[in-house]
Amino acid sequence: MSGAFRDLSVLLADRPGSLAEFGRILGGAGVSLEGGGVFTHEGVAIAHFLVDHAERGRAALEAHGIGPVTISDVVTLRLDQDLPGQLGAFSQTVADAGISIRVQYSDHDHRLVLVVDPDRQAECLRIAAEWDAAREARHA
């Protein structure tokens, strides 16, 4: 996946129309949503979306009074969807390296998207690349 895609996160009001407003603002700014979701817990809606043009998205949202917006680099990889336990196995590999996964979701192309501590990003990218290489070898 292109390095241009990043995770954009923001707290949204827990009310009808919040997600619609979020989507309209980003769409109006020409920012594409490539995966993600919104989860509400105890009255707070937390949005995490994989986007192109993250800084443009931040500016548009904050100009409309939505924010603060957090932008994070992501790690992406493919899991063998037909093999049960892949999420657990990969997550365990990351945990064994002492890396905590802060956010996990999927993109529109069926890739796993992770946000980890920025200080551990390079190591997690290495682990994901090794996982992908092993998966590719199994399918060769």
Rank of each mutant, 00 (worst) to 15 (best):
V31E: 11
A134P: 01
Q81H: 13
P118F: 03
A54H: 09
Q86K: 03
E21A: 02
A97T: 15
V69M: 07
A29Q: 08
Y105P: 00
G65D: 13
V38K: 04
A54G: 00
S91C: 03
Q81G: 02
A63F: 14
P84N: 02
M1K: 14
L87F: 12
H110F: 13
I99Q: 08
G43Y: 05
V69K: 09
S18G: 14
T40A: 09
L61V: 12
R126A: 03
D132Q: 04
G67Q: 09
R138V: 12
T40Q: 09
V31P: 04
F22D: 09
L19F: 11
D132L: 02
S100L: 13
G17R: 12
I66H: 10
F39P: 00
E130Y: 05
A47Y: 11
A122V: 12
R56V: 08
P118R: 08
L87A: 05
G43F: 06
D7V: 04
D109K: 13
R120A: 11
I66R: 12
G3F: 12
D119P: 01
R24G: 00
E55M: 06
S9C: 04
Q86C: 01
L50D: 05
G28A: 02
R135M: 10
I71H: 05
G37A: 04
G67A: 02
S18N: 15
E34I: 02
V75F: 11
G65P: 08
Q92V: 11
V115P: 09
G37W: 04
H139I: 07
E42C: 02
L50G: 00
V74A: 01
S18P: 04
T70P: 01
G28W: 05
R111H: 06
D117K: 08
G30P: 03
Q81N: 06
R24W: 11
S18T: 15
S106P: 06
G35E: 15
D96Q: 14
R102A: 09
G65C: 13
Q121S: 00
T93M: 14
A45Y: 14
L79A: 00
A89I: 15
G37T: 04
P118Q: 07
L26G: 00
D96F: 09
G98N: 08
G85Y: 11
Q92I: 13
V31I: 10
S106T: 12
G17S: 12
F49E: 05
G27Q: 10
A140E: 07
P68V: 05
R102S: 05
D73Y: 05
D73F: 01
A128L: 15
A29M: 06
L8G: 02
